[in-house]
Design a protein around this nucleic acid. Structure first.
Length: 281
DNA sequence: AGCACTTCCTGATAGC
DNA sequence: TGCTATCAGGAAGTGC
């Protein structure tokens, strides 16, 4: 599932080849994925527009167009973008949308489970995308400071695992990196946000930045079907300590990794390194 | 307001 | 082998 490091890797793989391309034609194979505006208007807004820059906010990919409008995509669980150079055009499996460029190259949006979302928005329509507008600060930015994390944690009684997944508080974390950050920080996922004390908050802060930094450096985590814009896998799966390692020995102490469900999400942790009691640090 | 729960969606996998 | 049930989970919506 693409989280911040995966979306950033996709952005980096697409920027050199897609920036400067002019969209000649947009074909929609599954209209349900186009959330705004209506498909006919969506296609019209993109026609003849040039992609100026590809940006990212949290897990949203943002294609800035030459008239100030934006093509915005959220890949959710199984969305993929595949750039095809002129002449190598082949339709990837589960293709749902294709943008054809002047000069013959094309960009496919593929999505097996069709949970993704695509928008073509004018600047004064961005408010429609609540998830984007209400996104919290991202790891590795000045805005995401230790003080910010401490204060935000204090105001919430929800479980720390659910807190980390809430994009309003921190932008870009998903299930994989949330579990990994909690392991690195030695914090049990069922602890409440407000219960974390000073050293734990500092440890969690460092761990969040660390997993995101190494995730990006590794080109993302390919556990199911994630690929970047050129079809390449990431390598961060080789560094995972707990995610999808249920029953396997903890890399630190050898205790089998456990899996529980929190807020409907599978949560993986080491029952010895991540104690529920507060004197665990 | 904050939090928990439900829904969407279908390929992969487990179990029989 | 082939069928069915379960699971994966981000974000929006619902309800307490």
């Amino acid at each position: 599932m693409p989280e911040l490091p995966e979306v950033e890797t996709i952005r980096r793989s697409l920027a050199p080849v897609a920036e400067g391309q002019r969209i000649m034609q947009t074909e929609i194979f599954l209209e349900r994925l186009v959330k705004w505006p209506e498909p006919a208007d969506f296609v019209g807004r993109l026609a003849d527009r040039t992609i100026v820059r590809i940006g990212r906010t949290g897990k949203y990919l943002r294609f800035l167009l030459d008239n100030g409008n934006e093509l915005i995509l959220h890949l959710r669980m199984t969305g993929q973008l595949r750039f095809m150079a002129a002449g190598q055009d082949e339709m990837p499996p589960y293709a749902r949308l294709v943008f054809r460029f002047a000069g013959g190259a094309s960009l496919y949006y593929a999505d097996a489970r069709t949970l993704g979302a695509v928008y073509a928005l004018k600047p004064d329509e961005l408010w429609r995308l609540h998830g984007l507008m209400e996104m919290g600060p991202e790891p590795l930015t000045a805005e995401f400071s230790l003080g910010y994390l401490r204060e935000t944690l204090q105001g919430h009684r929800t479980k720390i695992k659910s807190f980390l997944l809430n994009q309003k508080y921190i932008g870009g974390l998903g299930n994989i990196y949330a579990d990994e950050a909690l392991f690195l920080a030695g914090i049990h996922p069922l602890r409440t946000a407000a219960s974390l004390h000073g050293p734990e908050v500092a440890s969690l802060y460092g761990a969040i930045n660390e997993v995101i930094r190494t995730g990006i450096a590794d080109g993302g985590t390919t556990v199911r079907n994630y690929l970047d814009g050129a079809g390449k896998k990431g390598s961060h799966q080789e560094r995972l300590h707990v995610y999808q390692r249920t029953g396997k020995p903890c890399h630190r102490c050898g205790t089998p990794i456990e899996r529980i469900v929190i807020g409907g999400r599978g949560s993986h942790f080491c029952p010895r390194c991540q104690l529920l009691e507060e004197e665990s640090v």
